[in-house]
Design a protein around this nucleic acid. Structure first.
Lengths: 148, 148
DNA sequence: TTAGATGCAAATAGTTTGCATTTGT
DNA sequence: ACAAATGCAAACTATTTGCATCTAA
């Protein structure tokens, strides 16, 4: 029963929330999804696969809670229709979205530490994570049509 | 009838879409909203105020179209419940979201030109805009509770 | 002229709620 | 022990669709 807790689970508990089966299962699904971007429907489906006794409402409640703690972030990618839940793994997440074909290209490094320090200093805030999205044209779309 | 077109309207037309009354009205509502973040419900309401003959479906269709062109961006702020449509004014938008009270703090400058150039070069893409969100604690929440 | 966009109203998803019961701490 | 969280199913929103009509180019 007592596996070691993931850092995110610890943050949940530290913020005063109970580590319930439903919440830990949602977290596990998201953490096991790796670099995938899951929609709420996909999270529901996978949670159901792991334990069909967990109710839909609890999954939504868990997603809301994780979002409010900025442990995950709903964002609109891959066909602006439904939000996808993106883990904010070690506090940051970056991607490029092609305006034309809506492909998502992830990249690792971002040089935002300087900006973060400056904002913390100037605005008297403490910043722990970020999401950075670039919009533009991917290589394929650039080649396919120079006029797009 | 023919006022000069906003740059966004021009991009719509350049991408091969018709400049219809419904689309231009949605765009006008968003452009007149300034720094506000509007939900789809608020956009619907304001469009209805300007011209009640415009149907809800056309408003959603226009929002989808503007989103797919990355002229606006739905994002989750101010109570993760409903997405808010955020204009990407001159191609970029930045804010800080307080993890505790969900306040949104906007800031102007971001020093992403270097990163953009590097990504364009390395990944062979052309980048025209971006959205940058920082997560953390605002001044008030930091002061209120050092333990949060 | 005509492909593309619209408005309408009905259909569909997606999410939230109220409440009795269960669970984590 | 007991506040907090759950599962259920019903209620509710928000968004999408099908289609006949209209309109920007």
């Amino acid at each position: 029963m007592h596996q070691e807790l993931s850092p995110r689970a610890q943050r949940l508990r530290d913020a005063g929330h109970k580590l319930t089966h439903a919440r830990l299962t949602v977290l596990r699904v998201l953490e096991e999804s790796g670099r995938e971007h899951l929609t709420s429907a996909e999270v529901l489906e996978r949670v159901d696969g792991l334990d069909s006794s967990i109710g839909r409402a609890s999954v939504f409640r868990a997603l809301d809670l994780l979002t409010s703690l900025c442990l995950i972030r709903p964002t609109y990618i891959e066909s602006s229709l439904t939000p996808k839940y993106v883990l904010l793994p070690d506090g940051h997440h970056h991607h490029i979205i092609c305006t034309n074909c809506h492909r998502v290209i992830e990249f690792e490094d971002c040089s935002l530490d300087g900006l973060r320090a400056e904002l913390e200093d100037r605005l008297h805030v403490r910043l722990t994570g970020h999401l950075l999205e670039f919009y533009g044209l991917c290589e394929a779309c650039l080649e396919a049509d120079q006029s797009v």
